[in-house]
Design a protein around this nucleic acid. Structure first.
Length: 101
DNA sequence: CGAATGACAATGT
DNA sequence: TACATTGCCATTC
């Protein structure tokens, strides 16, 4: 049964491959999976635990997650991994964007 | 089945 | 840089 191609498992595996100190954008992951950018965000909003979701940011290099604890956690974790953040908690995609490899 | 929604992106102003 | 508009695909009402 083919059900749907929106196999979140593939997205989760990809996110788990993001090396420490680097980040990926939703569009980047979406492009690799061939999905619409909204699909990535949809699955990421319900991602399982143990997944480095904090390494995933939007094309602006900002955290797309809603205001709250997660927002602070993401910023703290990225800094702890050596990801350069600019003022406002924005990520320097120029220096930390995952090449995907 | 149609309209609305969502952790987005690209483009124009 | 910030805001507005349009396109994207699946889920929900």
């Amino acid at each position: 049964m083919k059900a749907t191609q929106t196999n979140p498992q593939r997205l989760y595996a990809l996110v788990a491959l993001i090396p420490s100190g680097q980040v990926a954008t939703y569009g980047q992951l979406a492009s690799i999976l061939g999905w619409g950018p909204r699909l990535v965000g949809r699955h990421m909003s319900h991602c399982p635990e143990g997944l480095p979701w904090h390494r995933v940011v939007n094309a602006s290099g900002d955290c797309s997650i809603p205001d709250g604890e997660g927002r602070l956690i993401q910023r703290q974790r990225l800094l702890a991994e050596g990801v350069p953040l600019t003022r406002g908690g924005r990520v320097n995609l120029r220096l930390a964007l995952w090449s995907g490899l």
